[in-house]
Amino acid sequence: MKKTIYFIFIYIILIACGSTSAQNDVAILQKRTNLPLKLIYNSQENDSSYIYLCFPKKIYIENQPNIKNKIHNYHVGQHHKNIDILHYKTYEYTNKLIIKKDITLNNNETKTFILYHGYLLKVLNEKLDVFIKNKKESQILQGFSVYDIYINDTIKKWAISKISDSLKGKLHFSLHNKEKGFFYKSLDIELFDD
């Protein structure tokens, strides 16, 4: 009887250690940023237009010792394995929006980078004019014009009313290392830092 209890005790310790190391492979955190929103102008219909409204996120990643991890993709959406490329967009940011790249994390390495996650919205043309009329685009991305939108209370209220909690989704990171193979980490996201 004592032997059985002893083995159960050892087994519980091993399981606990295993799950702790699995959770601590890599830590992904969000930090505050003062960057503007980005509006990607997609197409115009008779009375309304399709845009992607993109929100900045500063991401801090801390890797643990003795393991090399690779982030081979990240995206925003409802599910970590399904990438919806119509209703959501995710870009890396280095002075301008760029197509995201793989991120390799060596032992004990920390990295900070900025990404933008965007949502497909249909807005009235009058409303779009308020945002982009007489403004110069900040870049052309894959043939689409990108505009900077500086955050104020009116923009915040409007964006929150357009992007419901059910649409907002989570920020999903797909990772890989030699020990665990492929695994995922997801972050809850807020549209604005405050």
Binding site: K81, N82, I83, D84, I85, L86, H87, S174, G181, F182
Partner: peptide, 12 residues
């Protein structure tokens, strides 16, 4: 080790 995933809304 392989992992299953999906890409949704690929355009025509």
């Amino acid at each position: 080790m392989i992992q299953l995933g999906a890409v949704e809304f690929v355009s025509q």
